[in-house]
Amino acid sequence: DKPLMPYMRYSRKVWDQVKASNPDLKLWEIGKIIGGMWRDLTDEEKQEYLNEYEAEKIEYNESMKAY
């Protein structure tokens, strides 16, 4: 599988927590909350997800070359 983009990594990490805090919200409403949370992160906080993505992207590209 292709590596997940940084925002999607963050979304997967916080989804269950946001859903548990807001059990009556629809999926798109939860997505909207998470989008706002992502925008509110500092560049340093986002960098963690970007670093994970870049590392996985290198691994993915290497595995595709071998294939």
Rank of each mutant, 00 (worst) to 15 (best):
D43T: 09
Q17T: 11
P3I: 11
Y49C: 02
M37W: 01
P6E: 05
Y67S: 15
Q47L: 07
L41R: 03
E45V: 06
T42W: 02
Y49V: 04
Y60R: 14
G31K: 15
T42E: 08
I33G: 02
L4P: 12
Y10C: 01
A55F: 07
M5N: 15
L25Q: 04
W38Y: 02
S11C: 08
K32T: 08
L50D: 08
V18E: 03
I30A: 03
P6T: 03
M5W: 04
I34C: 03
M8T: 12
M8Q: 15
R9Q: 02
P6R: 01
A20Y: 05
K26Q: 14
P3H: 15
Y53R: 07
E54I: 07
L50V: 15
E56I: 01
M64Y: 09
Y53P: 13
A20G: 11
R12I: 04
N51P: 05
P23M: 02
M8C: 12
R12S: 08
N61G: 12
P6N: 07
Q17K: 08
G35V: 08
L27M: 13
E59P: 05
W38V: 01
M37C: 03
K26P: 14
K46Y: 04
S11I: 08
V18N: 00
L25H: 04
G31T: 14
G36V: 10
E45K: 06
E56Y: 01
Y10T: 01
K13M: 12
S21E: 13
V14P: 00
K65E: 13
P3S: 06
I34P: 03
Y7A: 14
G35F: 11
D1Y: 05
K57Y: 07
Q47T: 05
Y60V: 13
K2A: 03
E56S: 05
K26I: 00
E44K: 12
L41D: 01
N61H: 08
G31F: 15
R12W: 03
K2N: 10
A66Y: 07
Y60I: 10
E59W: 03
W38E: 05
I30H: 02
G31W: 09
K32I: 05
Q17P: 03
P3A: 07
T42M: 04
I58R: 14
D1V: 04
E45A: 12
E44D: 12
T42H: 07
D24N: 14
G36L: 06
S21F: 03
Y7Q: 10
G36K: 15
K19V: 14
Q47G: 07
I30T: 02
N61R: 12
A20Q: 06
G35W: 14
V18W: 00
Y7W: 04
E56N: 05
N51C: 11
W15A: 09
E29I: 00
D40T: 10
K32V: 06
D1K: 12
A66C: 06
Y10E: 00
P23E: 02
E59Y: 07
D24I: 15
G35K: 15
A55K: 13
K32F: 03
R9S: 05
D43Q: 10
R12A: 11
S21W: 05
D1S: 06
K19M: 07
L25F: 05
D16V: 05
I34K: 04
Y67G: 13
A55G: 11
L41P: 00
Y7D: 04
I34R: 01
I58Y: 04
Y10V: 01
S21N: 14
K57A: 11
Y7K: 12
D24L: 15
V18C: 01
Y49E: 03
D40Q: 12
E59V: 10
A55W: 06
Y7R: 07
N61E: 15
P23N: 01
I58N: 15
D40P: 00
M5A: 15
Y60A: 14
G36I: 09
I30R: 02
Y7L: 08
E56G: 04
N51R: 11
V14T: 01
L50Y: 15
E54Q: 08
E62G: 07
A55Y: 07
K13C: 02
